[in-house]
């Protein structure tokens, strides 16, 4: 757990990176020859998606630590990471949808692996909340949430593979988004915006965690006073 006094530093870092990323994307990265300005959403969409994966992965890791080592607080950390992961996942769907509208003229494209995968993950992790909130808080809820979170990280690569191999039965490959040849400045802009997203996610994670911990502390205190 982050010491409380580091949180402002982390928030400042996130803000600085965001400003740098916006500046790099707007002024330094070249305008795409084919897609024009709209391609710039790539610098937002892909880092958000990668950050969502990182959050789901971290949530599963904290879940695993809870099951394995009974680490104090790991359950709450797992939940907060997945909660943020779902928010970043929803942003991925939204930005992807905008990109699809601009590139292909439709709000939804089944041919985009990333979008389909995020739809599956969005459904999966929404069910995580249904599961979690239909169990009384306590060790059992922590266990079931953690097991489900671990299933999530197994589902990500397996679904990705499934969507890939389904191409030849369901959809012809119309668009190859993999491995865009990035120039030096494009790559720099991409990396900085990714770092900015990760820093933003880390900041939000610690803020939410601190809030939830404070809530729990308050409840304990209230109980100690009333009993």
């Amino acid at each position: 757990m982050l010491p409380a006094n580091r949180l402002p530093a982390l928030a400042t870092l996130a803000l600085g990176l965001m400003v740098a990323a916006v500046a790099l994307v707007a002024y330094v990265a070249p305008v795409d020859a084919n897609q024009g300005l709209s391609q710039k959403i790539f610098y937002f969409h892909v880092p958000v998606a990668l950050t969502a994966y990182a959050l789901f992965g971290w949530g599963a890791w904290r879940g695993l630590r809870h099951l394995w080592k009974r680490e104090q607080g790991a359950d709450l950390e797992s939940y907060v990471a997945i909660h943020l992961g779902v928010i970043f996942g929803a942003m991925t769907l939204l930005t992807g949808s905008i990109w699809a509208k601009i590139s292909w003229g439709r709000w939804w494209a089944w041919s985009s692996d990333q979008l389909v995968l995020f739809l599956v993950l969005f459904l999966f992790y929404s069910a995580y909340f249904m599961l979690r909130f239909s169990i009384e808080p306590g060790p059992q809820r922590a266990n079931l949430s953690a097991v489900y979170a671990v299933f999530g990280v197994a589902l990500i690569p397996v679904s990705f593979l499934a969507i890939r191999i389904s191409k030849d039965i369901i959809h012809p490959v119309v668009f190859k988004s993999t491995g865009p040849d990035m120039s030096g400045t494009m790559f720099l802009a991409f990396c900085v915006s990714w770092a900015a997203m990760l820093a933003l996610a880390a900041t939000l994670y610690h803020v939410e965690l601190a809030g939830k911990r404070l809530d729990a502390r308050l409840k304990e205190l209230r109980e100690a006073l009333t009993s």
């Binding site: 009384e136 808080p137 306590g138 409840k219 109980e223 009993s227």
Partner: peptide, 10 residues
């Protein structure tokens, strides 16, 4: 032991 908000054993 507590179940949610209810403390059962103290």
């Amino acid at each position: 032991k507590r179940y949610g908000d209810r403390q059962v054993l103290r």
